[in-house]
């Protein structure tokens, strides 16, 4: 038995050598820790990070949890700190629990910063943002009102109830609705966890409970297919439109079938690029300009020194007319 296990371990050790060799070079290291691996959105960020690493001559490490579990995420960040990775960026799952690793990074002189999802007041070096939370929340409401009018009922289906960035977006949606569209009826958010199936069930139930519902917002990218599918199977294309923060590849067929009216997203590949670039800046001890022209990006990134936010630019709105121009 023991010898058997030894064989297995030897085999896995061999594969470890190969993997480790790839990082053996003595370059600066920048890491990005997503909220969850294995979803197209973060894969695109990884691709952007790799492109930036090549351009800037740094090593890029991409490692994240398999469940949206903040403790697993912390463990990954802590291990990157122990490895001495000089700049670590995190798409924070839960803003309140990131404090221990921020402390431990500071003690070691490591630049810990957030990207994609922020932990304000945690002492992070900078937040690389795709768009402000406020911008995302208000854009989707404004775009929806353009399509369904002010006098409408709108449902919200989110992913994990504990994801702080998603909750921030929902907060701004609600704020925008009460401030600007008093007649708009925004239903209480429902949480589907990570699976498309649950999202579909909940969307179906929402449509049954509110026959006057005009639109459903899919907040987490993993809920997009479920929401769209529920609208298709209920035969409500045309009377209910879906919308959300999902990548063009995920939403393409739904945009074309009419189940989705539009989706709001930035280019995660560009965000990944900007993240690694910001990490390099931090390692080099350079500060950010109010407007940063970066060779690998389409548009300059703006920096808000007061809030410590490096902004990629306004989010893009994808509809059936422009979706085919994008591939991520």
């Amino acid at each position: 038995m023991l010898s058997h296990l030894r064989k297995v371990l030897a085999a896995s050790a061999l594969s470890l050598v190969i993997a480790a060799a790839a990082h053996a070079a003595d370059k600066h290291k920048v890491a990005f820790v997503p909220q969850l691996i294995g979803i197209p959105y973060f894969n695109a960020m990884e691709a952007g990070g790799n492109r930036a690493a090549k351009d800037l001559g740094v090593d890029f490490i991409y490692s994240g949890p398999v469940d949206t579990n903040p403790v697993d995420q912390l463990q990954i960040v802590q291990n990157l700190i122990d490895q001495g990775v000089e700049a670590i960026s995190v798409s924070v799952l839960d803003a309140s629990s990131i404090a221990p690793v921020v402390e431990s990074a500071k003690a070691k002189g490591i630049k810990l910063f957030t990207s994609d999802s922020d932990a304000p007041d945690s002492g992070r070096a900078v937040y690389v943002a795709q768009a402000t939370d406020e911008g995302l929340g208000t854009t989707i409401i404004d775009e929806l009102v353009k399509r369904v009018g002010e006098d409408a009922t709108i449902g919200i289906v989110s992913g994990e109830a504990t994801a702080s960035n998603l909750n921030a977006w929902i907060g701004f949606m609600q704020k925008q609705a009460t401030a600007k569209y008093p007649k708009l009826k925004l239903l209480a958010p429902q949480f589907a966890g990570g699976t498309a199936e649950r999202a579909a069930h909940i969307s179906g139930d929402l449509m049954a409970a509110n026959p006057d519902i005009k639109a459903i917002i899919a907040v987490a990218s993993s809920t997009c297919p479920g929401v769209a599918q529920a609208i298709e199977t209920a035969g409500k294309i045309g009377s209910v439109i879906g919308a959300g923060y999902c990548s063009p590849n995920t939403a393409r067929s739904y945009l074309k079938s009419g189940a989705f009216g539009f989706t709001v997203l930035w280019d995660p590949e560009q965000l990944g690029y900007l993240t690694v670039w910001a990490g390099k800046q931090l390692i080099d001890g350079k500060s950010f300009e109010a407007e940063n022209k970066i060779a690998g990006l389409e548009k300059p990134a703006t920096y808000d020194a007061a809030k410590g936010i490096l902004l990629l630019g306004p989010p893009a709105v994808f509809t059936k007319d422009n979706v085919d121009k994008f591939n991520f």
């Binding site: 498309a196 199936e197 297919p225 479920g226």
Partner: peptide, 16 residues
Amino acid sequence: FYVATYRNVEMTIGST
């Protein structure tokens, strides 16, 4: 039937 209904397979499929 799952594939037929949802036309989508994601990473977390079936976890619950």
